[in-house]
C-alpha cells in the first residue's frame, strides 16, 4: 500500500515537471463521450466523476451520450476524434468484450486509444426469484445442475453485464440453462420480480435495493472478497468457482496520439475525483467503490483492457454468440 502511495506521489511529481503543453491544458470545455443513453448506470458513473474532475481541471467536462450498438458507436466516434485531450471516452467492460462480440468493428480496440485510468469496478451478484428453492449457494449449484434444462436465465441483451455473467455462470456450473434475453435491465428485472424467470446475474447497481427488500434472492457475489454491503453473501470463489470472478469495470480513454502529459493530467484529476468523499458515498450506494489511485492510471487501464480482451475471447467464442 505504501509503495503504491509512493508511486502515486511519483506520478504527481512528474506531472509538476511536465512540459508547458500540459500546464496550459485544459484551456476549454472537455467532452466526455458516454457510449450509452443518458440516465443509465454508465452515464451515472460518468456524470459523478465528470463533475469532480471539472472542479479539479478548472474546465467544465460535459457528458455527451452517443448511444448505440453496445457502445461501439460512441467508442468509434472517439477513436476518430482529434487527439487533443478535449474528447475523452468513458466506457465499461464492453470495450473489451466488443472486440470479440463484434466481428467487424470500425476501430481496432487495442490500437485506437490512449489510456487515462480505471474508474470503478462494479461487482455482480447471482440472484434468483424470491421463491427459488435452494437456501444457499452450494445448494443453488446442485439444484441448477440437476434442473438445468427446466430453469430459465434472464439477461438484459447481448453484451450486457447480465449476459456476460450468465455465460460465465453456465460455463462454471456446466449447466446449459434456457436463456431468456430482454431489452435492457428494467424488463428483465421486472420478470424476475414477478417470478416469470428463475435466475439472473447482474450488477449490484441494479440488484442491491431489490435484495435488501427481499423481492429477489441473492446467492453469491463475483468479487475476490465478500462485499461490505452483504457480509453474509459468499463469493463464488469460496465454493470453488474461481473463474466466476469479475466485475463491470469502467475506464476513461482518449484517442490514439493524445499527448502523454494530457493523459497524466486527466489521470491525476481522476484520482482526485475518486478520492472525493461524495463520490465514494454515491458509489457505495450503488454497491461499488472508486478505483484506487494506482488503478486510476494509464498503465493499469491498459493492462486491464489487454487482460480482459484475452479473457473474454474464448468465453464468447465458446458460447458462439455475436452481436454484429
Amino acid at each position: 500500500m505504501t509503495l503504491s502511495k509512493l508511486m502515486a506521489g511519483l506520478f504527481a511529481a512528474t506531472i509538476l515537471t511536465a512540459p508547458a503543453f500540459a500546464q496550459g491544458y485544459p484551456e476549454r470545455q472537455i467532452t466526455m463521450v458516454v457510449p450509452f443513453s443518458a440516465g443509465g448506470p454508465t452515464d451515472t458513473v460518468a456524470r459523478l466523476v465528470a463533475e469532480r474532475m471539472s472542479a479539479d481541471l478548472g474546465q467544465q467536462i460535459v457528458v455527451q451520450n452517443v448511444g448505440g450498438a453496445g457502445g461501439t458507436l460512441g467508442a468509434g466516434q472517439v477513436a476518430k476524434a482529434e487527439p487533443d485531450g478535449y474528447t475523452v471516452l468513458l466506457h465499461h467492460i464492453g470495450m473489451a468484450t466488443s472486440a470479440t462480440l463484434y466481428r467487424n468493428l470500425a476501430y481496432d480496440t487495442l490500437n485506437a486509444f490512449e489510456y487515462v485510468g480505471l474508474v470503478t469496478e462494479v461487482p455482480m451478484v447471482v440472484t434468483a426469484r424470491a421463491d427459488f428453492e435452494p437456501a444457499d449457494f452450494p445448494a443453488f449449484v446442485d439444484y441448477v445442475k440437476a434442473n438445468a434444462d427446466s430453469l430459465t436465465l434472464a439477461n438484459a441483451g447481448i453484451g450486457a453485464a447480465s449476459h456476460l455473467c450468465g455465460m460465465l455462470l453456465m460455463q462454471a456450473l456446466e449447466a446449459p440453462l434456457v436463456t431468456v434475453p430482454y431489452k435492457g435491465t428494467g424488463p428483465a428485472m421486472t420478470d424476475l420480480l414477478g417470478g416469470q424467470v428463475d435466475i439472473m446475474c447482474d450488477q449490484t447497481t441494479n440488484t442491491t435495493q431489490q435484495i435488501k427488500a427481499g423481492t429477489i434472492k441473492a446467492y453469491a457475489v463475483t468479487t475476490p472478497e465478500r462485499l461490505p454491503l452483504f457480509p453474509d453473501l459468499p463469493t463464488a470463489a469460496e465454493s470453488g468457482f474461481e473463474a466466476m470472478q469479475f466485475g463491470i469495470w469502467h475506464g476513461i480513454y482518449t484517442p490514439k496520439g493524445t499527448a502523454p502529459e494530457v493523459n497524466q493530467r486527466l489521470s491525476q484529476s481522476l484520482q482526485k475525483a475518486l478520492a472525493d468523499e461524495g463520490v465514494a458515498k454515491a458509489m457505495a450506494d450503488l454497491g461499488t467503490a472508486p478505483s484506487s489511485a494506482q488503478d486510476a492510471t494509464p498503465e493499469a487501464l491498459k493492462a486491464k483492457l489487454e487482460a480482459e480482451i484475452a479473457r473474454w475471447k474464448p468465453v464468447i467464442e465458446a458460447a458462439g454468440v455475436y452481436a454484429d
Binding site: 435495493q209 427488500a213 450506494d285
Partner: peptide
C-alpha cells in the same frame, strides 16, 4: 441515482 437515491421497492 445521481442524487444518491437508488430506486427500489423500499
Amino acid at each position: 441515482i445521481i442524487q444518491g437515491i437508488v430506486p427500489g421497492p423500499n
